[in-house]
Write a protein that binds this DNA or RNA. Structure first.
Length: 852
RNA sequence: GCCCGAGUGGCGGAACGGCAGACGCAGCGGACUCAAAAUCCGCCGGGGGCAACCCCGUGCGAGUUCGAAUCUCGCCUCGGGCACCA
């Protein structure tokens, strides 16, 4: 704040470069002159330059944030100089468990704490010189914002895309909250590392699984999405599409006569459905396994086995997710006593219960094929169940796999001492009429056969689960629902939004699993919107990922309180032209944002269904080769560096230390390089102002200048900022070596520097006599003719080894170059006494003589 | 285990299949200075040679090619993601 309003007086003589003064001056001027505020209603060439908004922590912006924002800002400024009307907004993702935990620790309400953090963030964001349009700053904690977050919930509810269900959820006993599956890492809480338990609670879910196929298909649609490969790959994996078959195994008589069967399954004809991706191995299914939670377990269990089965189920239920999912994975299980009939063989096979089968995937039941599945094999070994081979190696010499040595003893009758899981090159065996079919064909053939028998069908499954948005916490937007004894869950009427989060003293959660909000009667009890009788508010708040799933829609429309996003503004500015952010959000934020956009599109609120046309993931900044962390004590506090070197030098250093999309290693010593460079440019510019006109410039310098323009432009477009900076340094080195002092060149240099060092460039620009901002200037164009010298050095190789170089005219023909090469002593030495058998000539580059 | 990404000087990193190491940091030598800092000039992968030059060199091993850091196959190491997903 003080930085910006600090009065400065910079004489126009060429004294040393003082970043503090220059930066304060231009930050103040940008604000005064509204330089960074495009006309949102009538832009000529709109360009929406978005970066992932920060969570305003107490520590302030760290180097990683600075790196990301600088890289994104650079791109926006570059586009601006190319003539676009660039809208570059910023905001704060300020709800959520991070803020809340910190507030609990300090015992201060986050509603008081967070604004302080935001204040600090705003100061830092201004200090690094981002091209932000501050008119459109937003915070997700602002009731004017979350009113519309709640509105989105209601739209989904109305459309049947939101529903409530009782579900076993991940419960973190330390944070005292449920966690989404994706917030559980190796069975532990993503945030605090505590072992996660299971609890059963009523939760609100969004039906994202209904969109799985669209979310997947668009990833391959270049017209909608130009995204970093690493990000689309992560989403593909997360969606987890698998093609398989749902097969039906009739329960056999033994089971149906069991006392509980009639009740559980309405008498005879009941079947066990399984999902498999290896329908081809059905002849090898020698037993079945149910998840402990599977509803048919009761019906199948015989009286003799009941005690054992019940005990096993109880044990499984009390197990936390760690030992269930990432424990030592020693297989456990019990026999139910029941049997089912293998629809392929017609044989009865036993049904077991084991916790390696998960209720949440597929049908919660599997056909176990121990011969060709590692888990089933292990289980069969342990419990002495039969193992049958139904896939064998194609015989040696057969087409495709004539490799007799690689796998010994995988013939049709060879015993299996390990599962044979090759699902590409094997052929079926011991599978009646399917014997000899290659596995891929057999998958189709067997599925079709079972389908014709009415025992199954091909299906596609996704790994993705519905999105649980309920959080039993305080610091989030209340879910706008009122419960009425007569009318159930009633949505809060839209006219009553927002449901404001009350400022309460005791905001910390407790063990009950009930939100702190429930303890406040004056807030909790409200009239039912339908009948007016006393109702109770939903006390859960929504997931922060819902806040961030639509913020890009809000930015252009922040001034409107009667609509979440203005239709005209939205049509003008969206979808986002360029979005830059970290790949840690590849599957959470980015997938949810896509989903919400799709739903709003389908409901007629948006004219597009993919929110971000282009997305690029930036890299990570490390220090001394290791991730920065408090525990390592290698955290770089950006403020200190900015205070010492200036924002421009800091920006340039961050962009210089590695390719933006890969990140780099922050080294204290390295920052002096960019600063020295700026000092050189500074004196060059000041000198050029004084005496730099009418001077004759060497042709080589003109070529260098054109090469530089090309390299800088291409580097910026590809986000390879480090190479752009290197090109600019080369140019300045060349200008100094040649003693050039030309104002025209200085101006083009300054414009090219502007995205990297905006304050510095503005100051230079002004000193060169311009009254407008440098960002009103045009990006320099280059002449392709002048990118290559008139005389070229052609490399001459003999047998592929470089032996010499010859000077020839540009585009010289092969004969000329060969003649020149033959005159060259360095070449002669390797050619004499030998015949040139072959010549390879690459124009303007290289001549290779093959001799022998 | 599966899926991505990456391995190049002392360090960060450059190189449409065509001079490996641009640019920068650090280091070394010199100029300026009473001295230091700053600045300027020069050197800076390894080995051999007085020298012009020569040989070796991009994680390892094969291959394709006139020519491979770059393409293909097989490994190794590191980073990231997913993971009892049937």
């Amino acid at each position: 704040m003080t930085d910006i309003s600090k009065p400065t007086a910079i004489p126009s003589t060429d004294e040393a470069y003082h970043p503090d003064a220059v930066e304060a001056k231009w930050q103040a001027r940008w604000a005064e002159r509204h330089i960074n505020e495009p006309d949102l209603d009538h832009p000529a060439r709109p360009f929406y330059n978005l970066m992932m908004f920060p969570y305003p922590s107490a520590e302030g912006l760290h180097v990683g944030n600075m790196f990301a924002f600088t890289g994104a800002d650079l791109y926006g400024r570059f586009k601006r100089l190319q003539g676009y009307d660039v809208f570059e907004p910023i905001g704060y993702d300020a709800f959520g468990i991070h803020s809340e935990n910190y507030a609990i620790k300090l015992g201060i309400n986050p509603a008081i704490l967070i604004p302080r953090n935001i204040e600090n963030f705003r100061r830092q964001l201004k200090r690094i010189g981002g091209m932000f349009d501050w008119r459109h700053e937003l915070s997700t904690t602002d009731p004017r914002y979350y009113k519309w977050t709640q509105w989105i919930f209601l739209q989904l509810l109305k459309a049947g895309k939101a529903y409530k269900k009782t579900a076993a959820v991940n419960w973190c006993p330390k944070d005292k909250t449920v966690l989404a599956n994706e917030q559980v890492i190796d069975g532990r809480c993503e945030r605090c590392g505590t072992v996660v338990e299971q609890r059963t609670l009523e939760q609100w879910f969004f039906r994202i699984t209904e969109y799985a196929d669209r979310l997947l298909a668009d990833l391959d649609d270049q017209s909608k999405m130009d995204w970093s490969d690493s990000t689309t790959t992560a989403q593909r994996n997360w969606l987890g599409r698998s093609e398989g078959a749902e097969l039906e195994f009739p329960l056999s008589v033994g089971a149906e006569t069991a006392p509980s069967a009639a009740r559980g399954q309405r008498g005879s004809g009941s079947v066990l459905k399984v999902y498999t991706t290896r329908a081809d191995t059905v002849f090898g299914a020698t037993f079945m396994v149910l998840a402990p939670e599977h509803p048919l377990v009761d019906a199948l269990t015989t009286p003799e086995q009941r005690a054992e089965v019940e005990a096993y189920r109880r044990a499984a239920a009390s197990k936390d997710l760690v030992s269930r999912k990432v424990g030592d994975r020693e297989k456990t299980g019990v026999f139910t006593g029941g049997h089912a009939v293998n629809p392929a063989t017609g044989r009865e096979i036993p049904v077991w219960v084991a916790d390696y089968v998960l209720m949440e995937y597929g049908t919660g039941a599997i056909m176990a094929v121990p011969g060709h599945d590692e888990r089933d094999f292990e289980f069969a070994r342990k419990f002495g169940l039969p193992i049958v081979r139904v896939v064998a190696e194609a015989p040696a010499g057969a087409e495709g796999h004539p490799d007799p040595e690689r796998r010994e003893g995988e013939g049709a009758d060879a015993p299996l001492d390990a599962p044979y899981t090759d699902n590409e090159s094997g052929i079926l065996a011991n599978s009646a009429r399917f014997d000899g079919l290659p596995v891929p064909e057999a998958k189709r053939a067997v599925t079709a056969w079972l389908e014709s028998k009415g025992a199954g069908k091909g299906v596609v499954r996704y790994r993705l689960h519905d999105w649980c948005i309920s959080r039993q916490r305080y610091w989030g937007p209340p879910i706008p629902i009122i419960y009425c004894d007569d009318h159930g869950a009633v949505p809060v009427p839209e006219k009553d939004l927002p449901v404001e989060l009350p400022l309460i003293e005791d905001f910390a959660p407790d063990d009950s699993g009930i939100s702190p909000l429930a303890r406040h009667e004056e807030w909790y009890y409200v009239p039912c919107p339908v009948c007016g009788k006393r109702g109770r508010r939903e006390t859960d708040v929504s997931d922060t990922f819902l806040d961030s799933a639509w913020y890009h829609l809000r930015y252009p429309s922040t001034e409107f309180d009667d609509r979440p996003f203005d239709p005209a503004r939205t049509r003008t500015w969206l979808p986002v032209h360029s979005y830059i952010g970290g790949n840690e959000h590849a599957v959470l934020h980015l997938l949810y944002a896509r989903f919400i956009t799709m739903v709003l599109h389908d409901l007629g609120h948006l004219p597009f269904d993919e929110p971000y046309r282009k997305f690029r993931a930036h890299g990570l900044i490390v220090k001394d080769g290791a991730k920065m962390s408090k525990s390592r004590g290698n955290v770089v506090v950006p403020d200190e560096y900015i205070a010492r070197w200036g924002a421009d030098t800091f920006r340039m250093y961050l962009m210089f230390l590695g390719p933006f999309q890969e990140g780099g290693d922050f080294q204290d010593s390295g920052i002096s390089g960019p600063r020295r460079f700026l000092d050189k440019v500074w004196s060059f510019v000041n000198e050029a102002c004084r005496e730099g006109e009418g001077q004759e410039v060497h042709h080589g310098v003109i070529v260098k200048l054109n090469q530089t323009k090309k390299r800088v432009t291409e580097g910026l477009e590809a986000l390879r900022y480090n190479t752009s900076i290197a090109a600019l340094m080369e140019l300045v080195n060349a200008l100094r070596a040649e003693n050039v002092c030309d104002k025209g060149i200085a101006e083009e240099l300054v414009v090219m520097l502007a995205p990297f060092v905006p304050h510095f460039a503005e100051e230079c620009w002004e000193r060169m006599g311009h009254r407008e901002s440098v960002f009103e200037a045009r990006w320099p164009a280059w002449d392709e003719e002048l990118v290559v010298e008139d005389r070229i050095e052609v490399v001459v190789q003999v047998n592929g080894k470089t032996r010499s170089k010859v000077q020839v005219a540009r585009d010289a023909d092969e004969e000329t170059v060969v003649a020149a090469a033959m005159r060259d002593v360095g070449v002669q030495r390797f050619v004499e006494q030998k015949t040139v058998r072959k010549r390879i000539y690459v124009a303007n580059r290289l001549l290779n003589l093959v001799v022998g």
